[in-house]
């Protein structure tokens, strides 16, 4: 197998394995719009990374983390609705990204690659970013699993039961920011949220516990990566969108399976 394909597979699998469990919490906590905001923000990171000549992934990660912190601070204030905060942050960052790109002399190829993803052009350095960040986020998720689940079910009940709600919430936002930035190259900023949401949504029907759903989401994500890359080679389809479409097909196919843990009363 060609080396670029092996790298593409490793990158895709790395993203899917982390995006599955993290995506479950994004779905459970109704944070899809936050994921989208992070994707927009990541593009500002890309633009700054390219223009300033620093690494694109670390730049995206820093900008995303900063935006996540801003969202957390504004959200804790409770005076502005969360979706308004996310709208302002997401589109403010995107607009700024476009201005930065224009000021630097027009849309460059690198920026396009991060907008649409270019999994077949993943470098060894990209792979290291994906796997190191992925491992860190998975470890964090394992440690925080119980408190995170508790505050997902009922945040005030969790607070009364001595879960450090504010801290856990911020750490999770940062984890989403890191996953988003690290997986930019695989599916691109436009489609990145799909890797968080679609495998998790598809996994719901197959799962009767939160843990099973996380594992299924990771597994379905990996299947989508293999299927998408195969389709990309066989039919010369763009790889990122092919992966997302494969995930969508898995989601649709999931409806054939009987839903677990939902007996009618």
């Amino acid at each position: 197998m060609a080396e670029f394909l092996i790298r593409a597979l490793l990158a895709g699998v790395g993203v899917a394995v982390v995006a599955g469990p993290v995506g479950c919490f994004v779905v459970w906590r109704r944070m899809v719009f936050f994921g989208a905001a992070m994707a927009h923000t990541a593009l500002l990171g890309v633009a700054l990374g390219v223009v300033l000549g620093i690494g694109v992934t670390p730049a995206a990660m820093l900008v995303c983390a900063a935006a996540a912190a801003v969202v957390a601070i504004l959200s804790a204030d409770r005076r502005i609705p969360d979706d308004s905060i996310l709208g302002v942050v997401a589109h403010g960052a995107l607009a700024l990204a476009l201005v930065v790109i224009a000021a630097s002399g027009g849309l460059r190829f690198e920026v396009l690659a991060f907008l649409f993803g270019d999994i077949l052009a993943v470098t060894t350095a990209d792979l290291i970013w994906i796997w190191v960040c992925g491992a860190a986020v998975l470890a964090l998720l394992a440690v925080l699993w119980r408190p995170l689940l508790a505050l997902t079910i009922h945040d005030e009940l969790a607070a009364v039961e001595d879960v450090p709600v504010a801290a856990v919430r911020v750490i999770f936002l940062l984890a989403v920011a890191v996953v988003t930035a690290a997986s930019l190259k695989v599916v691109g900023g436009l489609l990145i949220v799909s890797m968080l949401i679609i495998p998790a949504a598809a996994a719901r029907r197959l799962s009767s516990t939160p843990e099973a759903m996380a594992v299924w989401a990771a597994f379905l994500g990996v299947i989508a990566v293999f299927a998408g890359l195969t389709a990309s080679i066989v039919w010369d389809a763009p790889a990122g969108p092919a992966i997302v479409l494969a995930a969508v097909l898995l989601f649709v196919a999931g409806f054939a399976a009987p839903q677990r843990l939902s007996r009618p009363r």
Partner: peptide, 24 residues
Amino acid sequence: GYLPQEFPLDPALPLTVDRFLALG
């Protein structure tokens, strides 16, 4: 031991009663 007034439950999260008890 707290019984909140509102307890919005999300069908997206597969959680049995027993698991909920075990979590607390």
